[in-house]
C-alpha cells in the first residue's frame, strides 16, 4: 500500500509520467503539485502517461488526466497515453478521456505521436 511515488522522465520536450499501480485518490495526491513544478521548470511540448504498470484507475485519475490535457492544450502542446489495460481503457472511455487523448500500445509510439 505504500507505493505512492511517480516517476517522471524528461526526454527532450516530452515529459513521460509513469503512473502508479493503483491510480486512485490516495496515490495521486502529489501529482498535481509535481507536474506543475515540472511544467514551470521545463519546456514541455508533449505529456505522455505510462499506464503499463497500472492495474486500477477511478474517476480521480480522469480528473487529473483532463486537467493535464487542458494544461497542455492551453500551451499548444499535446498529451498521449500508452500501456493501458482493459479496465483502464474502459474507465478512459466512460470518463470521456479516450476521445481526447490518443492511446498507443508502446512507449516509442506514444513519444512519436
Amino acid at each position: 500500500m505504500g507505493e505512492v511515488s511517480f516517476l517522471y522522465e524528461a526526454k527532450g520536450q516530452v515529459l513521460v509520467i509513469h503512473l502508479p499501480k493503483e491510480f486512485d485518490h490516495h496515490n495521486s495526491r502529489d501529482l498535481r503539485y509535481e507536474t506543475d513544478l515540472l511544467l514551470s521548470e521545463n519546456y514541455v511540448r508533449r505529456m505522455v502517461f505510462d499506464f503499463s504498470r497500472t492495474v486500477f484507475m477511478d474517476s480521480t485519475g480522469i480528473g487529473i488526466l483532463l486537467n493535464r490535457y487542458k494544461q497542455m492544450q492551453r500551451s499548444g502542446g499535446t498529451a498521449a497515453i500508452y500501456g493501458a489495460n482493459a479496465q483502464i481503457r474502459r474507465v478512459l472511455a466512460v470518463g470521456g478521456v479516450a476521445k481526447l487523448m490518443p492511446q498507443y500500445a508502446s512507449k516509442e509510439a506514444a513519444l512519436m505521436g
Binding site: 498535481r32 477511478d58 474517476s59 480521480t60 480522469i62 480528473g63 487529473i64 483532463l66 486537467n67 474507465v91 466512460v94 470518463g95
Partner: peptide
C-alpha cells in the same frame, strides 16, 4: 475547489 476532481464519481457508480 482544487480543480482536480472530475465530478464523475456518481456517474461512474451509475455506469459500472
Amino acid at each position: 475547489r482544487t480543480g482536480e476532481r472530475s465530478g464523475m464519481g456518481f456517474a461512474f457508480m451509475e455506469a459500472f
